[in-house]
Amino acid sequence: MTRRLETFLDSLTQASSLDDLQSSVVRLRDVYEVEHLVYHSVKSTGQQYAALTYDPSWVDHYVAEGFEKIDPVVQGCFQRFTPVDWKRLDWSHKSARTLLGDGITAGLGNQGFSIPIRGPAGQFALFTVNHKASDEQWASFTTEYMHELILAAHYMNERALAMEGSDEIKAGQSLSPRETDALTLLAAGMNRSQAAERLKISEHTLRVYIESARFKLGAANTTHAVANALLRGLICL
């Protein structure tokens, strides 16, 4: 886990407006040195918004042409939750090739990876990384950073939901007693097996409680989660 994800997540927790979210997307794009990043949220009511680095003229063109109806990325991701490399999608239709050609003319890269996200209450979001690269370079990039990008995508969605005042997210942010206990013991210097033994749970159960707490805290890893919990006064030594 690289330090850059942690830095990004720390700044993301400060985001409180759509403008902030937009700045976060730009920052994340710069951190990972890719061409473009897109975060697009669709609520069950159909209400939607996006934070993205594409040129506004490309967005206008996309909307004017009604590309969302034929976009293989939309078709291949909507209401799903498994990440997909754009190469896996069906670009054989003439309309899809037009979309790709127009996109590249507008400054998009030839490679893409999209991460569909399911939030509470039927919320859906799509997080896309777009880049100019050879197949080999792209494979090496996705192999190295996929784990971090999945986390970044989901944290951005959590932040967006919290900003909207989502009840589910707010309710989910307080740590349960078990999560608090697990982080407290780690903060006190115990290793996982000692903490699990103390709590009389298996080590995997402990890992899952820590993972659950880590996600609530918007942290990149366990150490980061413990630090966040201490900082917010959720645990004390």
Partner: peptide
């Protein structure tokens, strides 16, 4: 587990009071 799911909705009383929610689970 980030979206609506059975463990959280129906069986939350069987997970030690922890609502398990993570993109990795």
């Amino acid at each position: 587990t980030t979206g609506d799911n059975m463990t959280a909705d129906v069986f939350n009383h069987l997970t030690d009071g922890v609502t398990i929610r993570s993109p990795l689970i």
